[in-house]
């Protein structure tokens, strides 16, 4: 089957082929769900927000400006829907969303993760979930969803410089822990 672009699918949906929205859902559901699971720390909330995000996207498709990338536009809906849920549930996570100067507390999980990780790769991946929320989001959007730093800054409503700082700090923190545990031998 021909691989349709997002824009081609959206044009088809706007012509009245509502069932074609399944192609968009299939394309984005897993990556968006991964992001939401990490943001909300709860599977049911993540599923609810994901459903809500897709329905909002469907209702607003006619307003989607096709000079923008659909993925950026859609992730912005997902991100804002998740923030609304977090705010409504008055979770403490809200505090963590306010600044890029969050303290890196991954060190306190280090012993536990280090003792269970089988190699450097597994160790790094387990630490990602312990990053401050904004850092984790930038990292996931960059590596899992393949968004550029510029697109991530649009999704999160932060400046490009701050987005870059968030990604670099995450990498540096993970790298420092790798060096602390002398993973060099495995790496070289």
């Amino acid at each position: 089957m021909k691989h349709l672009s997002d824009i081609e699918i959206i044009e088809s949906i706007n012509r009245g082929n509502a069932a074609d929205f399944a192609l968009i859902v299939d394309r984005y559901k897993d990556k968006a769900f991964s992001l939401l699971r990490r943001m909300l720390k709860n599977e049911m909330d993540a599923e609810e927000v994901l459903q809500d995000s897709f329905l909002k996207a469907y209702k607003s498709l006619k307003n989607f400006r096709q000079d923008a990338k659909f993925s950026t536009w859609f992730y912005k809906i997902v991100y804002n829907s998740a923030l609304t849920t977090i705010a409504s549930k008055k979770r403490k996570i809200e505090h963590a969303m306010t600044s890029i100067d969050d303290e890196f507390e991954i060190g306190k999980y280090d012993d536990e993760i280090y003792s269970t990780a089988e190699n450097a790769r597994q160790y790094v991946l387990k630490l990602v979930d312990k990053l401050p929320l904004k850092n984790a989001l930038v990292t996931i959007l960059f590596y899992v969803d393949g968004l550029s730093l510029n697109e991530i800054s649009q999704v999160m409503g932060t400046s490009l410089v701050n987005t870059k700082v968030l990604l670099h700090r995450s990498r540096n923190a993970l790298r420092d822990l790798l060096l602390k545990h002398n993973y060099q031998e495995e790496m070289l």
């Binding site: 509502a18 069932a19 929205f21 399944a22 859902v25 299939d26 559901k29 897993d30 990556k31 968006a32 769900f33 991964s34 699971r37 599977e43 599923e47 994901l50 459903q51 897709f54 329905l55 450097a120 790769r121 790094v124 991946l125 990602v128 990292t139 996931i140 960059f142 590596y143 899992v144 990498r171 540096n172 993970l174 790298r175 790798l178 060096l179 993973y183 060099q184 790496m187 070289l188």
Partner: peptide
């Protein structure tokens, strides 16, 4: 740099958590 490259290559393997089964049908 070596450690940073290791972090970078590991992060490319971040697990994608699949959405619940039947999700697409429910949405459609």
């Amino acid at each position: 740099l070596t450690a940073l490259k290791k972090v970078d290559s590991s992060l490319h393997d971040i697990e994608v958590i699949p959405a619940p089964e039947g999700f697409t049908n429910r949405i459609i």
